[in-house]
Design a protein around this nucleic acid. Sequence first.
DNA 1: GGAAAAAATTACCGCGCGTAAAATACTATC
DNA 2: GATAGTATTTTACGCGCGGTAATTTTTTCC
Lengths: 341, 341
Amino acid sequence: MEEKKIRNMDELATVIGISRPTLSKYFNDPTKVRSATRERIEAALDQYDYRPNMFAMNQNRRSTRNIGIVVPTIADPFFSEVVRHVEMRCTAAGYWPIVIPSHGATEQELAALDTLRTLKLAGAVIAPLGETSDVERLRQFADETPTVLFDSYLDVGQTFVGNDNFNSIGLMVDYLCRTGQPPCFLDMPAVNLNASERRDAYTASMERLGHEPYVVPISRSNWNFEELGYEEGVRLISNREFPSGTVLCANDRMAIGLLAAAYSKGLRVGRGSGCAMRIAGHDDHPLARFTCPPLTTVAQDYTAIAERSVESLFALIDGNSGAAVPAIQKLEARLIIRDSA
Amino acid sequence: MEEKKIRNMDELATVIGISRPTLSKYFNDPTKVRSATRERIEAALDQYDYRPNMFAMNQNRRSTRNIGIVVPTIADPFFSEVVRHVEMRCTAAGYWPIVIPSHGATEQELAALDTLRTLKLAGAVIAPLGETSDVERLRQFADETPTVLFDSYLDVGQTFVGNDNFNSIGLMVDYLCRTGQPPCFLDMPAVNLNASERRDAYTASMERLGHEPYVVPISRSNWNFEELGYEEGVRLISNREFPSGTVLCANDRMAIGLLAAAYSKGLRVGRGSGCAMRIAGHDDHPLARFTCPPLTTVAQDYTAIAERSVESLFALIDGNSGAAVPAIQKLEARLIIRDSA
DNA sequence: GGAAAAAATTACCGCGCGTAAAATACTATC
DNA sequence: GATAGTATTTTACGCGCGGTAATTTTTTCC
């Protein structure tokens, strides 16, 4: 193991006995050099552990291999899971994922876009805040960078990947009506378009089945869904204000809060006899399997959302790859029947 | 609002009527230029919305304002919370946080270090894998970059910030013994040094109180703690193998699994009469408040860990700032008594 | 063995900025 | 208001790589 320090491409090229442009080509696409050359390079490469300087590399490129990822928060398991998958796929494809959370704030989302602009991105995967997003600025951003939006729909970017709320809520409402009392709907804060879409889907499904919809509104608006679910649940149960013994929650985190509220009030939750309430959620939160009772829910396929987003983005980046990317990609969800409803 | 596009520092400097290096100094530290100059620059700055090119900026610097953050996973709420806080603090201080998950794999951790090395970091905050970390390579890395380790102790880097497991476990064992049957200990997989430290702390605490310790071992080793807790719980309850009706779990995620197991087996958990089991956790997982029953646990202060890590790192970066950074910083935890034990 | 195609080389410029040393502008002092 | 001393700005140079075009070398194929 020679310990001669390699400072740049030139030195490495000299040591190998080839020219720098050839080495440069290798780093940009190993198949662009003859296999014999490639082997010599790779042999030298694990002898000297040289790595091209990221900054110098990207400075002179029209587009880099950086991919920006913007999400409202990484503390929510949905986003952390999707981000995790997106990152892994990007890395595997030789891209460089850069995650910037917008922390639920409009200015931070805009700051993230500004930051990403200086990075000459190959593309971006963005879960916009939704209601509070600056649509105009987002569109401006998407105009100059291949952009995939996910989770919360906005008419921005080349494509959107998200859950088909009408399908998933429909599945759940059907199931709940078929097996017991028609559900009321515990709304979530209007933090994004999923909120209203799910509410609308609930109403539509109920009406389709000939039942009176009943939406329990949420007054406050923040991302502490469990707490909202819990507090609202305690209040409603105490005042006997739940219009139905079956409650469909707009998402699992609300449902987890509601489960805790029911427990604290001594209400038995489930579909067995002797149960006072049925509670269902939406998303298949990683812990939904482990609530007491296990939560009946609709599974958004986290992995699929991540993969479709990334694949769409890669297609957009390649550009020429005939396969046009559809403007809207809604993924079907899967009903997960557990014990809570 | 003039719409002349500014492409680089040169153009902006010309427009302002100063030299480019002066402008450069301003961006690196606004106090380094005369206030009159600063005002002219800032006036121009909000007229032209120019942003320096990140790559060109960093290429020629000895050290950048990049801060690397390496964690085993962002899917675990402990890490996602700490990362969130660290990111926010870094951004607020004008640094550029870059998160790279090691996904629980040694090679990925090493790859992360390699990647970070090319970034000429100002510093790094690392939660090492622990048992499976390549200590030698980590140390090598820490030798050339100011590095703070957190969560899982290794004798690497300039300082370590973590929970004082002997304190926290001691608190919990004391409490449990004081209020009922002495606990057995449901071990966690040996993914890092916290695992063995907590086990040792449990044993020591029990012996101190004159009780026989009993550790329930976990055979498999992965990060799906809830699942492990659940499956092990079901098995142990079915076979009546729990040596005590009080179970202290090595972390909350195991406890959440065990709660689900108890529920599925019809065992009532809590400290009231008529309860068959007491279950306690460790960490104060964000959902621990919302389990059924709410989980008695010891709160690691996520925010404090993040802040101490970042502050220590900043102190290391400043270097000269007299205040020496202690090699090991163990934070005290807080007993959180809820209903499960 | 020779022509065509593929790969590698040479030679050059540009990117947008950092940095050390030199030059200039300020400030304090008397 | 002249001078020394310091704070600020400018000059001059380099960083490590990408990109292109023209040329040379190597490989492939008939």
